[in-house]
Structures are given as structure tokens and as C-alpha cells.
Nucleic acid binder design. Structure first.
Length: 348
DNA sequence: GATCCGTGGGA
DNA sequence: TTCCCAAGGAT
């Protein structure tokens, strides 16, 4: 017995009873009609898993539906342009996921003739697929045995097994993955994996879990010890800084001058007002907006200039005049899109 | 190991 | 208003 497992719950069910309990509960109370569950198409699972990375189901659903309409197959996605991909992703956030999904489709076309492998170690070679997504695709697309650990699994396991370490720590991550490897079933892993996620999303929630409806409560460490509100252990919270930002508004009757951002900044490869480090001299304030990211807040000021040549030499990227009509066909960050919607009526 | 990367909804 | 956090991965 290793050090980590010594302090774990001694009332936990053995794997076979645990996973059968989860499977039975899933068939009765789990989610079985999500859009990516309707047809057992590995491409649908692939797309959904990329979109669901750090993003809630309700947010993903409309994006997923539109995506399949626009890119119905892996081949259509692989042959699409990056701009087209980003336009379909705009507003969903974490835009690297979109570029990774695009690269993944091309990789799968080139390497496997468009077939998605059913083995986690092969899947992890695919751009944008890490340990969780590899297990998820194996389970959900192919109903094959594999472990998977996401935020739901971490929360359920921390409570059920009495894991005290902060779930984002390396120690907890290693322990939870070891448990996940020990507990998945050889048969019916799709229902088991879905059941774990469903439990975490609908019963074993971060706040006010509905323990009375949980099929695992009788053998759950946190429930028995009345420590459901203590586990998983909260990490120390950090304050997010507020950063100033300066954007430039240059418009005329035809359209507005925008720039496509570089690939290694926030909003990579999306279009926005040109951004500068300092307000330009003699510029009038056109407006302002605030926006909250995952790790900082942006307090933006938008400065108005009459002509693009007032700015050209201070910018690293080129300006393009985007017609007012074309705005709906390019990928815009949400606050830029919002600002444009607000000011486009009187664009002067 | 720590940081970066979006956005929206709920309490 | 503020804070939390969601089917994580890459660097």
C-alpha cells in the first residue's frame, strides 16, 4: 500500500460493484440525448470533446449544431480554411482549440485516412488531444475500455474516496488517474464514463450536491463523514489584475479598418481593432469597454483616427478595410463584436 | 510546476 | 458586484 492510498476511504466499493452501480444509474438518470450522442459518429464525438474542453454543455450545444451543418464530415473540416474554422468558433473562446481541431482533422486524414483510432495512446498523438480527451473519445466514440479524468471525475472521486489534496495538484492528479485506471469496466465503458460525468454534472455538483439522489452515497467518504462541503479541497484563490488596453477605430462609409491578430496572443488569429501600447497623440476618445478573461481584466479605450496612415508605421500587422457587410463573415472576439454592434448604427 | 488561453451563467 | 467554474491542453 502506497502512502497516498493509506488515508483513503476504507468503505469504497470494489471496482466491479462501483462501476456497475454507475452504469445502472446512468441508464435510468443520465444524459442520453445530447446532440453528440444521437448518432454514434466518432467525428461528432471528436468535435464535441474539443468544444467541451473547459466549456459547459449548454454553451456548446448551439455551436455543435452549427458546426456539423458547416463541416458535416472530418474531410470537410480538414479541407476548410483556418479563417472559416475560426469564424464558426467565434464566441466560444479558447480559440486555440479551434485551430487544434482543424489540425487534428488534417492529421487524422493524413495519418489514418480519416479514420479515428480507438486507442488512447494513439489519440494522444493528435494535436489538441490530451489524456482526458483521448479517454473520452475511446469511451464515447468506440465504447472501448479506457480511463478518463475531467473536472467531474476529480470532484466525484475526491468526495467518494476522501482525497484531501487540492485536486489541481500533481499528487491528487496522479492519485485520481490511478483510481480511474483501476475502476473502469472492460464492458460498457461508454455508459460508465458517461455516468461519472453525469453524476458530477447533475448530482455531485460543486455547490449543494444532491446527495440524497446519489447512488453512491452509502459508500461515499464525504457523505459518511459529513464533509461534502469540504471536498474537494479549495485551492487558494488568486486575484486577477486589471490591464489597460488601447484600440484604434478608423472607419469610413465603406467599412472599418481591422487587423488579424497574431497566433501567440489572446484572441489568436481573430480580427480586431488594431491594438497599440499607448494612446496615439491627438486622438479623440471614441469609446471604451471592459472585458473579463480567465486570468485578467481588460479595461479598454478605443481611440478614433481619421486615416490609417496615421497608424501604419506603428503597427506590426497590416490593416485591412473590412466592409460593414463583411463583418459578419470574419472571426471577431466577443467584446469587439459587441462594441461594433453597439457603434455600427452611427459609425462616424 | 506555473501560466496562458474565453466566455457565460449562476449564486 | 464579485466570485466561481465548466467534458483541458500546450508550453
Amino acid at each position: 500500500m502506497n502512502k497516498a492510498s493509506k488515508s483513503l476511504s476504507t468503505t469504497a466499493l470494489p471496482p466491479s460493484e462501483f462501476n456497475q452501480t454507475v452504469i445502472r444509474w446512468q441508464s435510468e438518470h443520465g444524459r442520453n440525448e445530447l446532440p453528440w450522442q444521437l448518432e454514434q459518429d466518432p467525428y461528432h464525438v471528436l468535435v464535441s470533446e474539443f468544444m467541451l474542453q473547459q466549456t459547459q454543455v449548454a454553451t456548446v450545444i448551439p455551436y455543435f449544431t452549427r458546426w456539423l451543418h458547416h463541416f458535416p464530415t472530418l474531410a470537410t473540416l480538414a479541407s476548410a480554411s483556418e479563417d472559416e474554422v475560426l469564424t464558426q468558433w467565434q464566441g466560444l473562446g479558447f480559440y486555440r482549440r479551434a485551430r487544434n481541431l482543424h489540425k487534428a482533422a488534417q492529421y487524422l486524414q493524413d495519418t489514418y485516412q480519416g479514420q479515428i483510432p480507438a486507442q488512447p495512446q494513439l489519440l494522444q498523438e493528435v494535436p489538441g488531444i490530451g489524456p482526458y480527451t483521448a479517454g473520452a473519445i475511446t469511451a464515447f466514440a468506440f465504447n472501448q475500455p479506457a480511463a478518463l479524468v475531467d473536472g467531474n471525475v476529480k470532484r466525484v472521486f475526491c468526495r467518494y474516496f476522501g482525497i484531501e489534496q487540492v485536486p489541481t495538484s500533481t499528487a491528487a492528479d496522479k492519485l485520481i488517474w490511478q483510481l480511474a485506471e483501476s475502476y473502469y469496466p472492460e464492458q460498457d465503458n461508454r455508459s460508465y464514463a458517461q455516468g461519472l460525468l453525469d453524476l458530477g454534472a447533475t448530482i455531485c455538483t460543486p455547490r449543494k450536491p444532491n446527495c440524497i439522489s446519489c447512488p453512491l452515497r452509502a459508500s461515499c467518504y464525504a457523505y459518511q463523514q459529513q464533509r461534502v462541503d469540504d471536498l474537494p479541497t479549495k485551492p487558494p484563490r488568486k486575484t486577477t489584475p486589471t490591464k489597460p488596453g488601447h484600440f484604434i477605430w478608423i472607419s469610413n462609409a465603406k467599412g472599418i479598418f481591422l487587423t488579424q491578430r497574431s497566433g501567440d496572443v489572446i484572441w489568436p488569429r481573430l480580427w480586431s481593432f488594431p491594438e497599440v501600447t499607448e494612446p496615439p497623440p491627438n486622438a479623440a476618445l471614441h469609446g471604451h469597454f471592459k472585458h473579463t478573461f480567465s486570468h485578467y481584466k481588460l479595461a479598454a479605450q478605443v481611440w478614433q483616427l481619421a486615416h490609417p496612415n496615421q497608424l501604419a508605421e506603428t503597427l506590426s500587422t497590416g490593416l485591412e478595410l473590412i466592409s460593414w457587410q463583411q463583418l459578419k463573415n470574419i472571426a471577431l472576439p466577443t467584446p469587439i463584436k459587441r462594441y461594433l454592434d453597439k457603434h455600427q448604427q452611427n459609425p462616424a
